[in-house]
């Protein structure tokens, strides 16, 4: 029985009830099973099953089980995997427009970032990302980025001077951190714990979920809630899969996904509250950063650089 493979796109069985074809879709993403993106995928699975009367089921492969994000995209493009939640950080290396989400201090909080996905600019991003082999459907937001340090909270960029901060190796994020005067240090996440502990790095640009799940509160105690960047993933669908579905089935997929993502953002907002509560219990020194003007000159340089892209320019104009 181990030898049989579930049909994805090409091979599908006619359902006994005769309402239409049956499908077992595959979805993959990089985060662990407790992450919001995984829960959103689970919700998507439930919705698919309910809306299709059980004709559509979803196998979920979390934690990068099917490979790196580069691998995921390729599997989606070739149609062996049907869906993926791929980080904006990875996709921004492929499509410039997506750097719009990484413009510093543009979105006040998670809700503001989530609201921005209704704008024409966000729609343009999805369009730029879609091609002959995949289609970008929507954004799902992880928590906004904050700053965790081992030696004090931040009240202005002055306190970042010369500090070694671990950042994700994406150009726009890098550019912002270079401008602050800090020393942005790329480093894989599993190395961060010991590096913070021994002092290889002084802090990290991170969201609260990752802070909690990597237990970084054990070794770094000063958290500044800056909300300096949004951090979405993009829900991607294989073009092959989509083309093989009927109009009605496409509508079911779209509706299920929209419901799941809407559920996901509410879940994420609640998580932010719970995470903060938890981190306070852990005795973290947490401050709300509200001196945003202090970063104005830094932001201006980054905005200027990325404004060459028309979509990014108009999203900056809209939210600045």
């Amino acid at each position: 029985a181990c030898g049989s493979s579930e049909g994805t796109t090409g091979e599908s069985n006619t359902e006994a009830a005769g309402e239409g074809e049956s499908y077992t879709f595959k979805l993959t993403h990089i985060t662990g099973p407790s992450h919001n993106w995984h829960q959103t995928a689970e919700k998507f699975s439930e919705e698919l099953e309910a809306l299709s009367n059980g004709r559509m089921t979803l196998e979920i492969f979390p934690s990068g089980q099917l490979g790196s994000e580069g691998d995921m995209i390729q599997q989606i493009e070739t149609g062996t995997v049907d869906f993926g939640f791929i980080t904006n950080a990875y996709l921004s290396t492929r499509v410039d427009t997506l750097n719009g989400w990484f413009m510093p201090f543009l979105f006040e909080d998670l809700e503001a970032a989530n609201a921005a996905k209704g704008t024409p600019e966000a729609k343009q991003m999805l369009e730029d990302l879609s091609n002959d082999s995949m289609i970008a459907l929507d954004f799902a937001f992880a928590g906004n980025r904050h700053i965790l340090m081992t030696d004090g909270t931040i009240s202005s960029p002055d306190e970042l001077q010369g500090k070694r901060i671990r950042v994700i190796g994406s150009p726009a994020i890098q550019d912002f951190w270079v401008e602050t005067g800090a020393s942005p240090t790329p480093m894989p996440l599993p190395e961060v714990y010991t590096s913070l502990q021994t002092g290889v790095i002084d802090g990290i640009d991170i969201d609260l979920d990752a802070l909690v799940s990597n237990a970084l509160y054990e070794i770094a105690h000063d958290l500044t809630l800056t909300n300096h960047m949004a951090f979405p993933s993009v829900a991607i669908m294989s073009r092959q899969t989509r083309d093989s579905l009927s109009e009605e089935d496409i509508a079911i997929v779209d509706e299920a996904l929209a419901t799941a993502i809407e559920w996901g953002i509410q879940d994420q907002i609640q998580r932010e509250i719970d995470n903060l509560e938890y981190l306070k219990e852990q005795g973290l020194n947490i401050i709300d950063f509200n001196n945003t003007n202090a970063f104005d000159s830094i932001n201006a340089v980054v905005y200027e650089k990325y404004s060459e892209n028309e979509t990014i320019r108009s999203i900056i104009e809209a939210y600045k």
């Binding site: 030898g3 490979g67 894989p188 599993p190």
Partner: peptide, 23 residues
């Protein structure tokens, strides 16, 4: 012979990313 033939297209990518690791 037994699996999803579409996987072949991604096989080289998997070989590559198997060693694309900092550790």
């Amino acid at each position: 012979f037994f699996g999803n033939i579409g996987l072949l297209a991604t096989a080289p990518q998997r070989l590559y990313s198997g060693i694309e690791s900092y550790g």
